[in-house]
Simulated scan of single mutants.
Amino acid sequence: RTKPYRPQTNGKVERFNRTLQEEWAYARPYASETERVAAFPAFLHTYNHDRGHTALKGDSPADRVPNLAGQYR
């Protein structure tokens, strides 16, 4: 959900949707929609834990969250 009349938030959601299309939904041919849906959790883990984000200066979102479950440092 986004806040009404908040273009910055809408832009972030639109960028995430574009990333989903380019890196998950249409990144490769899937034999079925079931196969595509099954690939989503792995993509989401990669997106949040392994993939660097330019807005975070190359860090992943998980790198920026203190005390993420299972990562007590």
Rank of each mutant, 00 (worst) to 15 (best):
G70M: 00
T54F: 07
W24N: 15
Y47L: 14
Q8E: 13
T2I: 12
L56E: 01
K12T: 10
P7T: 01
A31D: 14
P41A: 02
F16C: 04
A25C: 06
N17F: 12
A27W: 00
S32T: 15
A38M: 07
A27Q: 12
F40H: 09
Q71V: 02
N48Y: 04
H49K: 03
R64T: 13
H45Y: 11
V13D: 03
P29I: 05
Y30S: 10
F40V: 14
Y26L: 15
G11T: 07
P29M: 05
L56M: 07
F40W: 13
Y5S: 14
Y26N: 15
E35V: 11
R6D: 13
P4G: 08
N10G: 09
R1H: 10
W24L: 14
T54L: 01
N17V: 03
A55K: 04
R64N: 08
P41D: 03
A38V: 05
Y5E: 14
Q21N: 10
R15C: 05
K12Q: 13
T2R: 12
V13S: 07
A31T: 14
H53L: 04
R15L: 11
E23F: 04
V65I: 15
P66V: 01
T2L: 09
P41F: 01
N48D: 06
R15V: 02
T2D: 02
A31G: 14
K3Q: 13
G52H: 02
R36H: 04
P7L: 00
S32G: 08
D59E: 06
S60G: 03
A27C: 06
